[in-house]
């Protein structure tokens, strides 16, 4: 499963970060590293980008970039 498929309000743990170059490095630098817990807080009015909650702050990324992040969804209430 990838991060763009996560439903609003659900949490997940990052498994791997794909992509390359500047984008991938930026994702890693912002703390989207393997084993990190993320929650999908919101989707922008036009359906894209998405708003994440991780490491105690809010981050927004585009869906096409979220697609490159593999996750394991957490079941049950976070």
């Amino acid at each position: 499963m990838t991060l763009n498929e996560l439903p609003v309000g659900a949490s997940a743990t990052i498994k791997a970060v794909g992509g390359e170059g500047a984008l991938r490095r930026r994702l890693l630098d912002m703390g989207l590293t393997p084993k990190t817990r993320v929650m999908l807080r919101k989707v922008a009015p036009m359906g894209d980008p998405i708003e994440l909650w991780l490491r105690g702050y809010e981050l927004t990324i585009r869906r096409e970039d979220a697609k490159k992040i593999e996750i394991v969804e957490e079941r049950g209430c976070p």
Binding site: G21, A22, L23, R26, L27, M30, P49, E51, Y57, E58, L59, T60, I61, R62, D65
Partner: peptide
């Protein structure tokens, strides 16, 4: 060239 990725913090 590659656009700078849109990976942006939403500050409080």
């Amino acid at each position: 060239g590659n656009p700078v990725p849109f990976v942006m913090e939403l500050p409080a």
